[in-house]
Design a protein around this nucleic acid. Structure first.
Length: 422
RNA sequence: GAGCCUGUAGCUCAGUAGGUUAGAGUGCCAGGUUGUGGCCCUGGAGGUCGUGGGUUCGAACCCCAUCAGGCUCCCCA
């Protein structure tokens, strides 16, 4: 491979036009879904203050402790955002969105950054779409958020997914549960893996989603959080499940589901796909009733989800779901001679005004080469212009699929060709 | 951060007892048709064999390092 002098950074990739078409398709499904659920788009900066992420996501999380792209400039600490929820929470507080009344419903699509070791379905710059509902503690909000996420996948035809849900409780129930876990694991400490041993003191709940084999038998018997939920949290959880049932959204209760971000309270969920290998999470989310306060706002209950675009692409590909048609070229203007090229350059806009896509040769190549290109680009029509056509005012309109030609004036051509739908 | 595997033309890949100017298919460009595509024929361009060292008379092939990718661990989207 001829090595380029400059290349993308480790774990960061270019998305070229063929690939970008797929992204556009997925994005349009997301935007359409957002419209149907009546969520407004929010676009926050890619750079945030490091303190916001550290506080919002949690100092002890992997994301903050070892995966941040952060730098200092002057007195300011910048970080490339590793996720979307903390920035949305910041924006909510900064712009006093609670003053607008009602529940704020926001969605976003954009790049996130984490300095992890790249592998399939995991990049250092990756893209997420997500949605947040701020200002509602109602279990219906949880159900709507999950429905939003599920709808995107359903529309795209990704059906072999599993929705896992759990409740991680409120602070009080979580405290009780953590103690119960510590009491349970402590006597068996010597049977735990090394990672889990350290988690025992720092964050015992994380032991539950350990993949270490030696931990599995113990995890099986570990106490279940649902037994430690406060009355309110249990009622909330029950209501969320009831609403999902009513919506016809299938789910799997997963008492051991714990998410890696600190801000979750009560509802936690994750959508997984068997097509993704080691990184099997398509998306996930939950309720974060304490985050807004944590980043300096009034106490505000909220719930949201985030989903990985790259993983969505992988899932589509695995299922053979076609994404994004090649853009249709309506007219290729084939020219011979400088005069004809000038004519084409000046008349192409008159076709484009009608919404037609129009291409021409910019390299002064032979008619044959231009026809070849028209064919490659799957043009519907070729308009051929040379000296004789310019003189007579009648141009050759060639239907590429039919291989038929007619002599028409430019006005007739302009009237005859109409844009293809889509 | 750790382990294993891979790295030859734009793309998919051949190419070891280490030995002269490194190959195929496809794509690209051109000619066959002096103004016309898709099929066919012919020709051409394109690779310092990921990069840097080392071993050797000689390395795409052996050794080391490095970079990039893949799979797994960790964790997450």
């Amino acid at each position: 491979m001829a090595q380029a002098q400059f290349t993308t950074h480790h774990g960061m990739v270019d998305i070229l036009p063929d690939e970008a078409r797929k992204w556009q398709h997925i994005e349009s499904v997301i935007r359409q879904t957002a419209r149907e659920f009546h969520f407004g788009e929010i676009r926050t900066p890619v750079l945030e203050q490091t303190g916001l992420i550290a506080r919002g996501v949690g100092e002890l999380t992997d994301i903050v402790s070892k995966e941040m792209f952060a730098f200092q400039r002057g007195d300011d600490q910048y970080v490339l955002r590793p996720e979307g929820t903390a920035p949305v929470a910041r924006s909510f507080v900064q712009h006093r969105l609670e003053q607008r009344g009602g529940v704020q419903k926001l969605f976003y699509i954009g790049p996130m950054f984490r300095a992890e070791r790249p592998q399939k379905g995991r990049q250092r710059q990756f893209h997420q779409f997500g949605a947040e509902m701020l200002g509602s503690a109602d279990p219906m909000a949880d159900a709507e958020i999950i429905a939003f996420m599920a709808t995107v996948y359903r529309k795209l035809g990704i059906t072999n997914t599993v929705l896992k849900i759990n409740s991680v409780g409120d602070p009080a129930s979580r405290k009780a549960y953590k103690e119960a876990l510590q009491n349970f694991f402590e006597p068996h400490q010597c049977h735990l893996s090394n990672v889990s041993k350290t988690r025992l003191t720092q964050n015992p709940m994380r032991i539950l989603d350990s993949k270490e084999e030696e931990d599995q038998p113990l995890i099986e018997d570990a106490p279940v959080i649902t037994d430690y939920l406060s009355e309110e949290s249990l009622a909330h959880y029950t209501a969320v499940k009831r609403h999902l049932d009513a919506l016809g959204i299938a789910y799997q209760e997963t008492p051991r589901l714990v998410r890696g971000l600190d801000y979750y309270t009560r509802t936690a969920f994750e959508l997984t796909s068997p097509d993704l290998g080691a990184q099997d999470a398509l998306g996930g989310g939950g309720r974060y009733d304490l985050l807004i306060e944590e980043v300096g706002g009034q106490p505000t209950p909220a719930v949201g989800f985030a989903s990985g675009m790259e993983r969505l692409l992988i899932a589509c590909e695995a299922l053979g779901i076609p994404l994004g048609e090649a853009s249709q070229l309506d007219v290729y203007m084939v020219t011979r001679g400088e005069e004809a090229r000038n004519w084409a350059l000046q008349h192409a806009p008159l076709l484009r005004e009608k919404g037609l896509s129009v291409a021409m040769d910019y390299a002064g190549r032979s008619i044959k080469a231009q026809m070849k290109e028209a064919n490659r680009e799957q043009a519907r029509f070729a308009v051929i212009a040379g000296d004789s056509e310019l003189e007579s005012g009648l141009f050759t309109l060639r239907d590429m699929a039919e291989s038929t030609e007619t002599a028409l004036s430019f006005d007739e051509i302009r009237t005859k060709i109409t844009p293809t739908l889509n």
